[in-house]
């Protein structure tokens, strides 16, 4: 074999080096952020910080009520957004050909995906909080976040559904399956990994959202008991503690827990899905 020309070899090394440098810089920045927050925050995290309610505007005590508020709002948002989002995705991918309606839905979803979250907050405040009279509440906050993540769920699910090979659908139809059976038993199991990725992404955004939540769920520090109670999520708590200089220590503690929570959700859901897929393979 003829050796590469020196110039070709140089550019080869150069390209490799630049790509490597880009990847490494990104990794270093990400790791640095996470490590910094964990170093600052982990010492604060202990049992009483997790189980006590905040006192004195969060200067002392723990963050128990904000953890409950965060989980509550996220749960409401995901429970609403997932069925509607997946339903819309199946409608777009399986039930219609390209027409004016699908174009409107897709265009709206894409536009909505690019809107800053504070606009959702404003909408939620005007529509849910004032017009529908929900007040600052977990329900209003959850509904607002559901609207916010809906475009993500629709788009990732639609892509996952479209990525299912057409030959699977043909095989299913050729066995005399109805459209619904084909979707439930053949398309959905093959698309589930992609759909779940979209949901995880949405959970992360719900947990981390501040602007949309302040407007719609408020920032009350007491433990919420019903859907109609106002609450303060961890992200909002962090924002207020830090921006108003209440307690940087507790702010970092909250941030560390946020990161850990998102990490746990990611790993946990992925484990669940791979178990589901394995079970489907085996049974």
């Amino acid at each position: 074999m003829k050796p590469m020309k020196p110039s070709a070899r140089t550019s080869e090394y150069l390209a490799k080096g630049m790509i490597w440098a880009a990847a490494m810089s990104v990794m270093i920045v990400l790791v640095a952020i996470i490590v910094y927050i964990l170093i600052k925050g982990l010492p604060v995290l202990n049992f009483s910080f997790l189980t006590q309610n905040p006192y004195n505007m969060g200067r002392s005590g723990g963050i128990a009520s904000t953890i409950v508020g965060t989980l509550y709002i996220t749960l409401v948002a995901i429970l609403i957004a997932v069925p509607f989002g997946i339903g819309t995705a199946f409608y777009l991918a399986e039930y219609t050909r390209e027409n004016i309606i699908t174009r409107i839905i897709r265009f709206s979803a894409e536009s909505l995906a690019g809107i800053p979250s504070i606009i959702y907050g404003l909408f939620g405040f005007i529509f849910f909080v004032i017009y529908l009279g929900m007040g600052w509440s977990i329900l209003a906050g959850g509904l607002t976040l559901a609207f916010m993540v809906l475009p993500t769920i629709i788009r990732t699910s639609e892509e996952a559904i479209r990525a299912v090979p057409q030959i699977y659908r043909e095989a299913s139809y050729s066995l005399g399956a109805t459209k619904w059976q084909t979707i439930i038993k053949t398309v959905f199991p093959s698309a589930i990994q992609g759909i779940v990725n979209g949901i995880i992404l949405s959970v992360g955004r719900c947990i981390a959202e501040t602007a949309a939540v302040i407007f719609t769920a408020g920032s009350v520090l007491s433990m919420p008991f019903s859907l109609f109670d106002s609450t303060r999520t961890m992200a909002v708590h962090f924002y207020i503690l830090a921006s108003e200089g209440v307690s940087m220590e507790n702010a970092y503690g909250t941030a560390a827990l946020l990161i850990i929570l998102i990490f746990v959700v990611n790993v946990g859901v992925n484990l669940l899905v791979s178990r589901f897929i394995n079970k489907n393979q085996k049974r």
């Binding site: 090979p165 030959i167 699977y168 043909e170 095989a171 299913s172 050729s174 066995l175 005399g176 399956a177 109805t178 059976q181 038993k185 053949t186 199991p189 093959s190 489907n280 393979q281 085996k282 049974r283």
Partner: peptide, 21 residues
């Protein structure tokens, strides 16, 4: 079909999917 298009499931599940439908 032209290419083998079995589903990503077990042998048994591939056979029974039609009858189950």
């Amino acid at each position: 079909f032209q290419k083998p298009n079995i589903f990503p499931m077990s042998i048994r599940d591939n056979v029974i999917i039609g009858p189950k439908h």
